[in-house]
Amino acid sequence: MNQLVAIALASILSWLNFVTIDIWMGLPEAPGVRGAKVIGESIKKRGGDLGGGYFSGNIVCSPDASAGTLLASCSYFAFGSPVGGLIAALFVYFGNRICADPGYAGTTGALTTTLLIWATSYIGLSPQNFIVGMIIAILTIQGLYHPSASKLIGKMARKMNRKVIED
């Protein structure tokens, strides 16, 4: 497969994987730590969505499905087989616990990415494509324009019934 097509396909799969798992696991509902709250409120002040802001804050402050996806791809590449993905899930779990997070999003993300890489290897995608793809995917949420990205996440979160829990 052409490398550019492969990277584009891997980016789309990685984006869908990490965004749906992180929303499903309730990242837009509440900040896990104080840092995530500060980031969420700052994004809201700049015209963004509070839920989307908490989502961004949470993925900065602990290894959630975004980090799980990236680390599973790296580990799959380094170990050369799905074994790498299982090892990544183990380390992502401990990383989460250290960051005051129960770790459901991170480990689920690592395991689903391992499955995705294994399944798409039959159509010519490689773990390297997923490493680049995930970096592009996270760039669209964290690196381009926070207000728009957070509004999109907020809209998706409301559709998936993961609204901000007022405290």
Partner: peptide, 28 residues
Amino acid sequence: KPIRRSWKISVIYPTVIIALGLYAIWEY
């Protein structure tokens, strides 16, 4: 429940994840 906010240690999570990860390291 709700599982996504629970800190309770259980069989499926994280025992199985830890066991799989450790065995993957051993096998490699």
